[in-house]
Simulated scan of single mutants.
Amino acid sequence: MNDSKNFVNHIRPRFVPEGALRVLYTFCLGGVSFLAFIVLGVTGLLLMFHYQPGDNAFSSILTISSVIPYGGVIRNLHYWAGQLMVVTVNLHMLRVVWTHSYKPPKQLNWLVGVGLLIFVLFLDFTGYLLIGSQESGAAATVAVNILGLIRLIGSGLAQILFGEPSVLSGSTLVVYVWHCVALPMVAFLLQLYHFWRVRRDGGVRPL
């Protein structure tokens, strides 16, 4: 077999056992999570045209919801897709634990999945901060204070992750960049690797 065919088989294994893809076994939770991620990406991109991070965050969201044509629909789709992804990713992790699908040789993909869960939770939290309301400001203040308790690196870490949110608004340019660029990009690449490892390891069957 030539090198090109070896490469194709390496990237896309020739077959996956049929039982590994049963709906009643996987519940399609990984696929639903990825679909929610795609919806989040598309609706988030549309929201970026009118959203303003910082002190004008809350007013810009009101403008999107009440002035921009279909803005309320797009924002609601974005919000509910985010909540759906949080739920389905957590259920997906529970399914993996229930079926022992984290055992060798799948332990690396399990760790990737744990990392994706953390990214999803942080994406959801930063999205909440970007609302720019007094409640999100309070949440950002609590997060900054908790990180500040970590000796030596806490204050610097809080600055890197949240910038300097006010108690009246959790929206900052730092949070905006994390939520709209850095976290989605890393999460997308990890998901591609995660899917590839599932096929590479022969599906989702427990050993």
Score class of each variant (00 low, 15 high):
202 G>D: 04
143 A>K: 05
28 C>A: 11
71 G>N: 12
115 G>M: 06
141 T>Y: 11
180 C>T: 14
88 T>V: 12
192 L>H: 01
207 L>N: 08
120 V>N: 13
2 N>F: 07
113 G>D: 09
169 S>D: 02
93 M>Q: 04
201 D>E: 12
127 G>S: 01
147 L>A: 03
177 V>G: 03
21 L>C: 08
175 V>N: 09
104 P>R: 12
50 H>P: 01
6 N>E: 13
159 Q>A: 05
7 F>I: 14
152 L>P: 04
42 V>K: 12
26 T>S: 13
166 S>Q: 08
185 M>S: 15
111 L>F: 12
39 V>I: 13
160 I>Q: 03
206 P>G: 09
103 K>T: 10
12 R>C: 08
48 M>V: 02
204 V>D: 00
30 G>C: 12
180 C>E: 04
106 K>A: 14
188 F>K: 01
162 F>T: 02
82 G>K: 08
170 G>N: 03
112 V>Y: 04
83 Q>I: 14
129 L>W: 11
145 N>W: 02
18 E>F: 13
50 H>N: 15
197 R>D: 06
172 T>F: 06
133 S>Q: 06
169 S>K: 02
2 N>T: 14
145 N>V: 01
115 G>A: 11
58 F>N: 03
64 I>W: 02
165 P>H: 07
190 L>E: 05
87 V>Y: 09
157 L>Q: 01
136 S>K: 11
57 A>K: 05
76 N>Y: 04
60 S>P: 11
165 P>M: 03
203 G>Q: 08
17 P>L: 02
119 F>N: 10
198 V>D: 02
93 M>Y: 02
145 N>G: 00
174 V>D: 05
99 T>Y: 11
157 L>F: 09
169 S>H: 07
79 Y>A: 06
35 L>Y: 03
102 Y>R: 03
144 V>Y: 10
153 I>Y: 08
8 V>E: 10
7 F>M: 12
70 Y>N: 15
31 G>T: 10
200 R>D: 09
130 L>S: 07
29 L>W: 06
76 N>H: 10
170 G>M: 10
157 L>C: 00
163 G>N: 05
105 P>T: 05
171 S>K: 06
112 V>G: 01
46 L>R: 05
185 M>H: 00
196 W>H: 13
11 I>Q: 12
1 M>A: 15
182 A>S: 12
59 S>K: 11
23 V>A: 04
154 G>K: 03
110 W>H: 06
50 H>E: 12
33 S>M: 07
9 N>L: 12
141 T>N: 09
165 P>R: 05
142 V>G: 06
3 D>Q: 10
